[in-house]
Computed example of a mutant assay.
Amino acid sequence: MGDSTSASGTGGFGEILVSSRSLDEYRAMFALSEQDLRRRILDCPGSAAGFTAEVCARGGDVTACDVAYFGDGSAKVAATAVAEAERGNDFVRAHAQDYRWEFFADPDAHRRARSESARQFAAHSGSHPQRYVPGRLPQLPFADNSVDLVLSSHLLFCYADDLDPEFHRRAIIELLRIGTELRVFPLVPIGSRTPYQRLRALISELADDGVDCRVVDVDYEFQVGAAQMLMCRRARESATRS
């Protein structure tokens, strides 16, 4: 997440976290293949993830976008990324029963992984600032069809009490304007173990907008109940691939 606005419905979490996730976590969350990692990728919201740094170091092409990057925001995010990783870890420790300790063996492993990703973000965003573009959903500063794959982690559906249904619809349509395929994870609000209650209605509304969506199981579950992503394509793209 990259929005620093107050979130009242986050199960006691407070402000939306600027989080740091790794390439390995992205692989699991979004079921990313090696072929996927060779595509042009937009990560939105990019937050303080190490994903862009790690994929670009492998020769890939990833751009991160986040509202937190406005002005000298990316530098501020970098400066606070490790502290935010600690804040996230404190929350996880205090609510350990709401998490499955498989991807991360324990809270200490979670802390180490997130802190390392935060450090990677700080180094890469400082040396390659063009990879970190400020933007605010549901309108982003990218051309149509400028990437192949858009990844959106821990914003949509997570803050259902703060982001209304129309925001979700418009955000998904905007992300698919930029990329031919969108993957959203997770589908479960923070503090819940069940999917976003309007998910079926949203999928139906998006179908009317020419967007095909399907819920896909992934081999990753950290927050209990969050083991699925939403995969979306414009209908004409789906027809071309079928």
Rank of each mutant, 00 (worst) to 15 (best):
A239D: 06
A239P: 12
Y220S: 02
C44F: 08
D219V: 09
A68W: 00
C232E: 13
E174W: 02
T194N: 10
S47A: 15
E166S: 01
F13M: 09
V133G: 08
R169F: 04
T240L: 10
F222Q: 00
T240R: 13
S20N: 13
D72P: 02
R27N: 01
I172A: 00
S47H: 05
R193A: 12
G179F: 05
Y26V: 07
R169C: 11
F142L: 14
R234P: 00
Y132G: 03
P189R: 10
L37G: 03
G88M: 08
C158E: 08
A53Q: 06
A122W: 05
A28E: 10
A48C: 01
A68N: 05
G210H: 06
A49G: 14
R112K: 13
A160Q: 12
G9F: 05
A48M: 01
R40P: 10
G210W: 06
V150C: 12
R119T: 04
V184E: 15
G12W: 09
D209N: 11
R87Y: 06
S127V: 09
E15S: 10
F30R: 00
S115H: 02
E166G: 03
R193S: 13
C65R: 09
Q223T: 04
L156S: 12
R38K: 14
R183C: 04
E34T: 04
A7C: 10
R177T: 02
R93I: 04
G9C: 09
T52M: 12
F13Q: 07
I190S: 01
S238C: 12
L17G: 13
V62C: 03
I41E: 10
A113W: 03
C213Y: 04
D217V: 02
F104C: 14
A201G: 11
G60S: 00
D212K: 00
T194W: 07
S74N: 11
G46C: 14
S204G: 15
Y69L: 06
D98T: 05
L17V: 10
L182F: 13
E116I: 11
V150N: 07
Q228D: 15
R21V: 03
V133L: 10
G88I: 04
R38W: 07
S74T: 15
G88C: 01
E15Q: 07
C56P: 11
G225H: 06
A28T: 04
A207I: 07
E25K: 07
A81S: 14
A122T: 09
P138W: 00
D219R: 13
G11Y: 09
A207E: 15
G210T: 01
I203T: 15
T5E: 12
Q120C: 02
S238H: 08
L156T: 11
